[in-house]
């Protein structure tokens, strides 16, 4: 079973994670370096993406949200796993979007008008980027150095690249949005490993009780985050 939009099915969802990295994480890795070691030992097996697609998502999301002095990047946070898991949900099938035709394009400010749901955008978008990358750089995206990966992402964001039926900018925004979701959603969904995203922001997660911290004259909140499942950092 999968979580639906209307009903929390956390128990069955957590059950579904048994034996996966997320479950492993929920059962107590203290830091993202330990998480990374765990990931290396038991890599997540993607369900929606094939191996090439998954390597692309890992590589591109890491450029969008890179490891740096501030803390972990997309790879250590499990963003690719998060996105692969999201592809199994009603969201990825566009079940909350109005997807009736005709599909007529118009000015950008009137919003998304393509006949593609997120699963389509990833399939078509990744194939398009790989095609573009091989044409211009002679290699797959994941095998390029970071500077060239950044060039490609910049071109997609700027809107100068069309990926077959999908405008490069549309695919870029889909990937950016899901990458950031994966960095900062509750670890329940496979990303934000070790609560690494929340630690960087100083977000206390599921504490949700600030009666004594409404106004402390600008002092930082003192407690580390906790997840919905009770994981602490």
């Amino acid at each position: 079973m999968e979580p639906t939009l209307n009903r929390p099915l956390r128990r069955s969802f957590v059950k579904g994670l048994l034996g996966t990295t997320s479950f492993w994480m929920a059962s107590g890795n203290a830091s993202w370096t330990a998480a990374l070691a765990a990931e290396a030992a038991h890599p997540y097996q993607p369900i929606f993406f094939d191996a090439m697609e998954y390597r692309f998502v890992e590589a591109a999301s890491e450029r969008l949200f890179p490891a740096d002095n501030n803390g972990p990047g997309a790879k250590a946070l499990g963003v690719a796993e998060f996105i692969d898991r999201q592809m199994q949900t009603p969201y990825a099938r566009g079940e909350n979007w109005y997807m009736s035709g005709p599909f007529q394009q118009g000015p950008a400010n009137l919003g998304y008008q393509l006949p593609f749901v997120p699963r389509d955008l990833y399939r078509k978008g990744i194939a398009g980027v790989e095609h573009y990358t091989r044409q211009h750089y002679g290699k797959g995206f994941a095998d390029l150095p970071p500077a060239q990966q950044d060039e490609i992402l910049t071109a997609l964001e700027g809107g100068s690249v069309q990926l077959g039926e999908v405008p490069g900018r549309v695919f870029f925004e889909q990937l950016r949005t899901n990458t950031l979701e994966g960095a900062f959603a509750d670890p329940l969904y496979g990303g934000n490993r070790g609560l690494g995203g929340w630690i960087m922001l100083g977000f206390p997660g599921a504490r949700a009780d600030f009666m004594d911290w409404v106004n402390q004259e600008g002092a930082p909140y003192p407690l580390a985050p906790v997840s919905i499942s009770g994981e602490t950092a």
């Binding site: 939009l5 949900t89 969201y91 909350n96 109005y98 959603a185 599921a206 919905i228």
Partner: peptide, 22 residues
Amino acid sequence: AYPESIDELRGAVRKRLFQNLS
């Protein structure tokens, strides 16, 4: 109920309580 209800992804991001445009 706490804690399931305070899940940002399932709540405001995936729009649990909002109109289903489909």
